[in-house]
Computed example of a mutant assay.
Amino acid sequence: MKFVSKCMVALSTTFALMSAAHAATPADSFQLSPRIKAQAAAKAKPTFVISYHDPALSVAVPMRKGVAAAAKELNVNAVFTGPVGGGAEKQVAELENWITKGVDGIAVSSSSTDALAPVINKAIAAGIPVVTFNTDNPASNRLTFVGQDLAYSGVVMGDTLVKHMGQKGKVLVFTVDAAAEWSKDREKGLRQALAKYPGISIVGLVNTTNEPQQIYAAIENAMLAHQDVNGIVSLDCCSFPAIGQYLKRNGLGGKIPVVGSDLLPQTKELIKNKVLTATISQNPQRQGHDAVVVLNQIYTGGKMPDPHTDTGVQVIDTSNVDQHAAE
């Protein structure tokens, strides 16, 4: 009887795990609206909106190129847009307008999970396919996420910093938007990685904002307040090269390990000159490109995508920087 009881428990556990693995997702029940279905059946050229949370950021340049490339390859209309300077309310208002106009698919990089989830759900309920890219919104009913595992990228940042800094020291962390979901995810991963080393402490999380002069001023103030810092991490594309410029101007280039994100042209040069240590590439051009590809797959064949299209994590440093084009 004990054997039978154990078997029943094992079977129950197995079925529970199988049920969880096959739990219903928004993609399972999603249906294109009659309007979109009719257009697709008639092979009409679709219009997709690719909404990035701040097109003024440098990383948006390769994303826009990826979107344009996919639009040309697939013969679709793809509009790269978003609130210049950022702002969840502005992004929501833009998306509301596109939903009213009746576009055929939307890709969203959310400036805020809470603020964007309702408008994403509204589009899904109207039969307009919505995917997220670059920054996910798992609280919404989006159909899939195209982009990097942001928490894992933070882990890689931490591991890379320790490789160059050692297992003891003080770390400063910079971000252009500490409240953004992408920043919080990377910060979570970074803290997870550094928590393995009792001798390492994060002495500050500095929110620089995304205006160039404010970024530099925030870096300068933080570095003056923490002159004994042993390592620096930038969670974004844009404070990273500014950190390099500060270190270079103050004779600190190459003396403090610095790890950041993306490979902007300035970042590439600063890594080549050994001012910055390493960057974690998220392939933003592919993110823009594949967001359009996934939307077109849904539009043309009703094909539901996998839950996550991972664009990967790659460490770029002096050993391989020349093998990579600036993003």
Rank of each mutant, 00 (worst) to 15 (best):
M1L: 08
M1D: 13
F3N: 10
A10V: 11
A16Y: 14
A20F: 07
A21V: 07
A23M: 15
A23H: 11
A24M: 12
S29V: 15
R35Q: 13
F48C: 04
D54E: 11
P55M: 06
A68H: 10
A68S: 08
E73P: 01
F80N: 03
A88S: 14
W98Y: 12
T100A: 10
V103K: 00
D114H: 05
D149V: 06
L150N: 07
A151N: 06
G169V: 14
G169K: 02
G169A: 11
D185G: 02
G189K: 01
A193H: 00
I202G: 02
V206H: 05
N207Q: 14
T208P: 03
T209Q: 13
Q213M: 10
Q214Y: 15
A218D: 15
I219L: 05
N221D: 09
M223D: 06
H226K: 08
Q227I: 03
D228E: 11
Y246K: 05
Y246G: 12
L247E: 07
R249Q: 13
N250M: 12
G254A: 12
I256D: 03
I256G: 06
V258C: 13
D262L: 00
L264Q: 11
T267W: 05
E269H: 12
N283V: 02
P284V: 02
Q285M: 08
P307T: 10
I316C: 08
I316Q: 11
D317P: 03
T318W: 05
A326I: 01
